[in-house]
Measured scan of single mutants.
Amino acid sequence: TSIVNVSSSLNVRSSASTSSKVIGSLSGNTKVTIVGEEGAFYKIEYKGSHGYVAKEYI
């Protein structure tokens, strides 16, 4: 489990790309479970499925 480190919110994306669809967002200090990594993104558990967040904010 890791913590989201942002002051406002962090986009959760459908794939490991800044141009991919935003499927949701997480607020600062939210706990997330990392299940993998791809480039500059972590794959996380998100709403019963998976999403991707930028590593620099975790």
Rank of each mutant, 00 (worst) to 15 (best):
S14R: 10
K43D: 01
A40F: 07
I34T: 02
E38K: 06
I34K: 02
A16N: 04
N5W: 08
A40D: 14
G39P: 02
T18D: 12
K47N: 14
S49N: 08
S9D: 09
I44M: 02
G39K: 05
I34E: 00
T33R: 12
E38G: 03
K43H: 04
S19K: 11
H50P: 05
I3P: 06
G39E: 05
S15P: 01
G39T: 03
S17M: 07
I44T: 00
S7Q: 12
Y52K: 00
K21L: 11
E38R: 05
Y52W: 11
Y57A: 13
L10G: 06
T30P: 04
V22G: 02
I3E: 07
S17K: 07
K43E: 05
K47Q: 12
I34L: 04
V6I: 13
T1R: 11
I58F: 13
S20Y: 06
S27W: 10
S17C: 09
E56P: 05
G51C: 04
G39V: 02
V53K: 00
K21V: 10
V12C: 04
V4T: 09
S15K: 10
I23N: 01
I44P: 00
A54Q: 14
A40H: 09
S25G: 06
Y46F: 13
V53D: 00
S20T: 03
G28H: 13
E37D: 06
N5F: 07
V6N: 08
S9T: 12
S15A: 13
S7L: 12
S17E: 07
R13Y: 15
A54I: 09
S8E: 10
G39I: 02
G39R: 04
I3W: 11
T1D: 11
S17N: 10
G48S: 07
S27D: 13
Y46W: 12
I58A: 04
V32M: 06
Y57K: 08
E56R: 13
K43I: 14
N29A: 09
E56L: 10
T1H: 14
G28P: 15
N11Y: 13
S25N: 10
E38M: 07
S9C: 15
V35K: 04
Y46N: 01
F41D: 02
A54M: 13
S14V: 11
R13G: 03
L10E: 04
S20N: 02
S14E: 15
T18Q: 11
V53G: 01
K55M: 07
L26K: 01
I23M: 07
